[in-house]
């Protein structure tokens, strides 16, 4: 067993390796961690770099992959990348689900039979309130996309982001749950998470401030380096935040993995107050 596999088994390191495939997005959400928008620098990870890291990760003991951004499906090669990754290990893609036109839906046929899930953001059960934060027409596109993905054998998870999950309106939350169930997404595939006060949300009163100890260490690879969590490589005021940077080196993968295991291993048990967000 490799040291990484041991760390994963011991709970020191998360089993999923994350990739920031790109930073640009078709939406401009008010709480976006990465200040993503249509015109921002793309900061793409190349397909060969993603695949090489995934292959090395599997040898090291990682057992799952995640892809986030930006909106990953804006990349023309995303489906091919996902197909390769999912042939190695189960793969989760975080998406706003607003870019699944007929062509992209056809391309998803390449993922048939593979362990692929798309985690889709849906914040409120009412279109007008949902779209206040995520942009006009978002709700309708998401509601339209979910059944189409399920029909094609793509697993769907719903991620709901609210200011504070503990004080969220229970009636509104129940209506949202009824909605996702009606779309074919069970409760076990619905996550509710707080707005993180980083990126575009850092200047306001929304959400909660976080530190390294709040997150399960999950190695996250970006074009700018390796981070300790997918909530780490945020952008604030157009500049990459480096407070959760592990190493600039991402290849070979064992280098940032070793550094993150060292950092995570130095955290005392008393500091293990993770908020468990995904």
């Amino acid at each position: 067993m490799t040291s990484t596999a041991e760390a994963i088994e011991d709970g020191v390191l998360g089993a999923r390796l994350w990739f920031y495939s790109n930073y640009h997005c078709n939406l401009t959400c008010t709480y976006c961690l990465t200040e993503s928008a249509p015109g921002v620098p793309r900061r793409e990870l190349s397909a060969p770099a993603i695949v090489a890291a995934a292959e090395e990760a599997a040898e090291m003991g990682f057992t799952a992959f995640g892809i986030t951004g930006g909106e990953p499906f804006l990349r023309e090669d995303l489906t091919r990348i996902v197909a390769r990754l999912a042939s190695i290990a189960p793969t989760l893609i975080l998406s706003n689900a607003t870019v699944f036109n007929a062509r992209r839906l056809r391309e998803l046929a390449a993922l048939e039979g593979l362990p692929v899930q798309v985690q889709i953001s849906l914040d409120r059960p009412d279109p007008d309130v949902n779209d206040e934060m995520r942009g006009p027409g978002n709700f309708a596109k998401v509601i339209d996309a979910i059944p189409k993905l399920l029909e094609r054998g793509i697993g769907v998870r719903i991620a709901t982001t609210v200011d504070d999950p503990e004080t969220a309106d229970p009636v509104e939350m129940e209506r949202l749950c009824e909605l996702h169930r009606s779309l074919g997404v069970p409760d076990c595939d619905h996550v509710v998470r707080p707005i993180i006060r980083r990126g575009r949300a850092s200047g306001g009163d929304l959400g909660r401030g976080v530190a390294f100890e709040d997150f399960e260490p999950e190695l996250t690879i970006t074009a700018d380096g390796a981070f300790s969590t997918p909530f780490g490589p945020t952008v604030t005021g157009g500049r990459l935040d480096t407070d959760l940077l592990v190493t600039r080196t991402t290849s070979p993968l064992r280098r940032p993995a070793a550094a993150l295991m060292q950092i995570a291993g130095e955290q005392s048990a008393g500091q293990d107050a993770r908020i468990g967000i995904r």
């Binding site: 407070d243 592990v246 940032p256």
Partner: peptide
């Protein structure tokens, strides 16, 4: 200091470190 990478944090424990450390922190490894 508020952007010090994880591996660099010990060098920032006393506040802003020397300029050499502040520059090297861009590549924490």
């Amino acid at each position: 200091p508020d952007q010090a990478p994880l591996l660099a944090r010990p060098y920032y424990a006393g506040g802003a470190p020397s300029p050499i450390v502040g520059a090297l922190a861009h590549v924490p490894e």
